[in-house]
Design a protein around this nucleic acid. Sequence first.
DNA 1: AACAAAGTAGACCGATTTGTCTACACGCGG
DNA 2: CCGCGTGTAGACAAATCGGTCTACTTTGTT
Lengths: 191, 191
Amino acid sequence: MSTKRIHLITTAFNLFYQKGVHAVGINEILAESGVAKKTLYHHFDSKDELVSAVLAYRDRCFCHWLEEKLDTTAPGMAKIDALFDALDDWFNDRVATLLPFHGCFFINVSAEFGDPAHPLHQQCSQHKKSIAALIETQVQTLNIESNLIAAVTDALCLLKEGAITLAHVQGDRSAALKAKQTAHLLISGCV
Amino acid sequence: MSTKRIHLITTAFNLFYQKGVHAVGINEILAESGVAKKTLYHHFDSKDELVSAVLAYRDRCFCHWLEEKLDTTAPGMAKIDALFDALDDWFNDRVATLLPFHGCFFINVSAEFGDPAHPLHQQCSQHKKSIAALIETQVQTLNIESNLIAAVTDALCLLKEGAITLAHVQGDRSAALKAKQTAHLLISGCV
DNA sequence: AACAAAGTAGACCGATTTGTCTACACGCGG
DNA sequence: CCGCGTGTAGACAAATCGGTCTACTTTGTT
């Protein structure tokens, strides 16, 4: 893949993530990246396609980061700790590759493209499904009844999304730890 | 308050809630409401001030609706059921006064005005704090140790925000019932 | 050496953005 | 009866939007 293309995507992500997609114009991305307009439209047919590429890029970064965090943790309850500790790192800007926390990019983009039928909205939905699947495989390493796996996964996803929202809207940087505490209470009652 | 002012606010909310604040121009609000531009700028100094008024309007509607739902419910566990049943009504468009569900307006606006120092972002944060306080007074009617009240309130807020996000981004209309189930598991372990 | 792909700068397009302004109309209280 | 507050319609301004285009240069491959 072209270096210019990558540079455009990373620059666009920086700006979109901080200010929102609609608040950032094409020209701002070009000025910030130092790339010519023709080059942008050579790689992407429209702004929406650039946004789509940015979503795909962030999806890869985020999933790889989380997957590695969880895979390098011993099976069992430690997996759940690792999940919320990872979120805590994210919320408190201890993960350089994720950039300073400005909420979940996919939740933010979903808010701007509110129509569920919009391709960009669906792309965000797909990312959330990937993360949920990732969490479910971790839950399967727990010593709980197999018919509880789906419910526990749902619960963890709810707590995760809740923590992200609390951290962003309310600015509550301890949201991940609160969610972790809640998850402990919850799962200790299931074992 | 002037009828034109109210009409502008409700029309603007409809459009903002569906399409997002930045995606809706002043002219669209004027065309939809049939109000003259001069009248809008007579009541509001800028678009941001209109957005602020719309946030305040939605805050009143939403808090009144939820407060009434919870206040008319018997103390105890029924309060928690009432909370998530109310969310379920909202997600499934059974509450006419809230308009068809497009996520939480305050989360959406926070996403568009991502800077935590922005007045509109802070207004959204304040709304969430009001709702949290509302929930805490309900938790106090539960038969749990007083030192658990804060933690249970946090947990319910996390589940609530998580359910809203799941319902909006993923289009999971059953999110409120999942959250309700999780809350049951959680609190039954605390009593 | 030659050729195609990918790059540059920036003028330009029509549409749209927020916001101002003029000119005028209606109703109500002092 | 007169002035003030509220309203209308819409022209206008200055900036910005996404996107196209021309003319030229660089780079990599064969």
